[in-house]
C-alpha cells in the first residue's frame, strides 16, 4: 500500500550568495563558492531544491594563536607561523574556503597594524585560490581599522568581512559596500536579534545577497540546543517568506568546540571523558554535524579530521537527491 507523504511547499527560499570573484569578475580567485538557494528544510530533496551543498571552511590565523588548544597547535605546527602556508595546508586538507581570523596583536605583542593585516590577507590570497572570509580581532576599534584597510586593499575580491554585530556594524558594512565585498553578521543565539541586525545592515543599503548571517551556535554541551533551534527557526521563517531571514547561515563550530574544556584540557579530567584527541575531534565533529542538520550553509572548522568527516557527511546528505526525485 503506497504511503501518501505530505509535502511542504514553501513560499520563500534562501538567497543564493557567491563568495569570491574570478579574474573575469574583477578578483583573483581560482574558484568561487556559492551557497544558499534552498527551497526546503535541510536536505529535504523530496519537496524542494537544495541546489548548493553546505561548504566547509577552515579557520586560520595571521600568526600562531595564543589561546588555541595544544592539540590544534600540534596539528598545524609546520605552518602555524605563516598564514600563507597555513592557507595552503587548509586547502590541501579539503577546505572549500578559508577563514582568516586576524589577531589583536602581532608576534611582538604590539597591536596589529592595518598594514600587517593587509599583508597577511594578501599573502593568503596568493597562497590559495579559494574564496576568503576575513574576521577582525573582535574588538570594535581594531576591527574597523583593520577591516577597512583589508577591504580597500582587496577591492573586488568578494571577500566576506566580519564580524558585524549590533553595536558595531556601520563601518564594516560601509567599507564592504564601497569595495564589493560581503559581510557576516553575528548575533547571540536569538531569532529576533539575527533578523534585526540583517534589517539594520540592509537599511544602510547593502543588498541582502551580500550578507551571511551567523546566529552563534554554542558548542556541544555549551548551548548548542539554542543555536540548533534558532537556526531551524530562522530557516523556517525564511521558507515562510520572511525576507530578512532568507540569508545563508555561517556558523563557527570549530571556534565553539575548541574553546570547550573538553577540547582544551587533556589532564586532570574524568576518565569517563576518554581519549583527549579523539574526544576533542568528536566534539568539533558532532557540533558541526548537528548544525549542518539544522541548516548551516558554511561551517568553519579547525581540525582536518573534522573537515574530512563533515565533508563526507554532506556528500551523503546531498546524494540522497537522486534517490527521491
Amino acid at each position: 500500500m503506497p504511503v501518501e507523504v505530505p509535502k511542504e511547499k514553501w513560499p520563500g527560499s534562501v538567497r543564493t550568495i557567491t563568495l569570491g570573484a574570478l579574474p573575469s569578475e574583477g578578483g583573483t580567485r581560482k574558484r568561487v563558492v556559492t551557497v544558499g538557494g534552498e527551497t526546503a528544510m535541510p536536505f529535504m530533496h523530496f519537496e524542494g531544491e537544495i541546489p548548493n551543498p553546505p561548504v566547509v571552511a577552515i579557520e586560520i590565523k595571521d600568526r600562531k594563536p595564543d589561546d588555541w588548544s595544544p592539540l590544534l597547535l600540534e596539528t598545524w605546527k609546520d605552518v602555524i607561523d605563516d598564514p600563507a602556508q597555513w592557507a595552503a595546508a587548509a586547502e590541501a586538507a579539503g577546505a572549500d574556503l578559508i577563514v582568516l581570523a586576524l589577531s589583536l596583536t602581532n608576534r611582538n605583542g604590539e597591536p596589529t597594524s592595518p598594514d600587517e593585516a593587509v599583508a597577511s590577507v594578501k599573502a593568503v590570497l596568493r597562497a590559495t585560490g579559494l574564496p576568503l572570509i576575513v574576521f577582525g580581532p573582535g574588538q570594535a576599534e581594531a576591527d574597523n581599522a583593520l577591516l577597512v584597510a583589508v577591504s580597500e586593499a582587496t577591492k573586488g575580491e568578494r571577500l566576506a568581512l566580519g564580524i558585524c554585530e549590533d553595536k558595531n556594524y556601520r563601518t564594516i558594512v560601509a567599507t564592504a559596500m564601497a569595495n564589493d565585498h560581503l559581510v557576516t553578521a553575528r548575533t547571540p543565539m536569538d531569532v529576533n536579534l539575527a533578523k534585526q541586525l540583517n534589517i539594520l545592515i540592509s537599511d544602510m543599503g547593502l543588498p541582502l545577497d551580500r550578507i551571511l548571517m551567523d546566529p552563534t551556535t554554542g558548542a556541544l554541551g555549551y548551548g548548542i540546543e539554542y543555536g540548533f533551534s534558532v537556526m531551524e527557526r530562522l530557516r523556517l521563517a525564511a521558507l515562510q517568506g520572511d525576507k530578512m531571514t532568507q540569508l545563508p547561515m555561517i556558523v563557527t563550530p570549530g571556534f565553539e568546540a575548541w574553546k570547550a574544556k573538553e577540547s582544551k584540557v587533556g589532564e586532570g579530567v574524568p576518565a569517563s571523558w576518554g581519549d583527549w584527541l579523539n574526544r576533542a575531534i568528536n566534539w568539533e565533529t558532532l557540533t558541526a554535524l548537528t548544525l549542518v542538520e539544522s541548516g548551516a550553509d558554511i561551517v568553519v572548522l579547525r581540525h582536518p579530521e573534522s573537515v574530512k568527516r563533515v565533508k563526507a557527511a554532506i556528500e551523503e546528505l546531498m546524494a540522497a537527491k537522486s534517490l527521491v526525485s
Binding site: 576518554g274 579523539n278 542538520e293
Partner: peptide, 30 residues
Amino acid sequence: QTHAQMAQAIAKYAGFLVIDTFAEELAYPL
C-alpha cells in the same frame, strides 16, 4: 556507524540508536 549518523539520529527523530563501537570519548559527547 558514522559520527554523522549518530548526530543525525539524535537531532532528527530516532527513538533508539545502536552504535557499533563503544569508546568513552564518543559516548560522552553523544
